[in-house]
């Protein structure tokens, strides 16, 4: 069997380490997109940001799942509801178009435990 030269040994060692190291980096690079690692947050957004449509979506990356939502018109509650959304899941909640009131700030307020977020649209004529 041909003896491996020193140069080839150094090169093979270098390449082997590079492959092992880089494969490891590739195996972890998507952790920011993983429910397991990038957790503890949730988001709230309107389905149609440019129209008066008040339908909204909740995206959950926390360990909790019990969301409570309220629809308010200038802080006066119009309707409310609950949504159970698992970790890594998204849920859309439809709001009827007739619920939007002119000249009011229509607020969607979501509570998850003690954490509260809201989105709103200022409805004009």
């Amino acid at each position: 069997m041909k003896k491996i030269s020193q140069a080839n040994l150094i090169i093979f060692f270098f390449v082997a380490l590079f492959l092992v190291g880089s494969i490891y980096l590739f195996s972890i690079d998507q952790r920011y997109d993983s429910h397991k690692y990038a957790k503890g947050w949730w988001s709230l957004s309107f389905d149609n940001p440019k129209t008066n449509d008040l339908s909204f979506e909740i995206e959950n990356f926390t360990s909790k799942s019990d969301f409570h939502w309220e629809l308010l018109a200038d802080n006066a509650q119009i309707s409310e509801g609950d949504a159970s959304i698992g970790h890594g899941k998204t849920q859309e909640i439809k709001i009827d178009a007739d619920k939007a009131q002119s000249d009011k700030r229509m607020i969607i307020r979501i509570s998850l435990g003690t954490d509260t977020k809201e989105i709103y649209k200022n409805i004009s004529n």
Binding site: S43, P49, K117, E118
Partner: peptide, 8 residues
Amino acid sequence: NFNQIYSN
């Protein structure tokens, strides 16, 4: 004249 349309 500003709507808050997304929040995390």
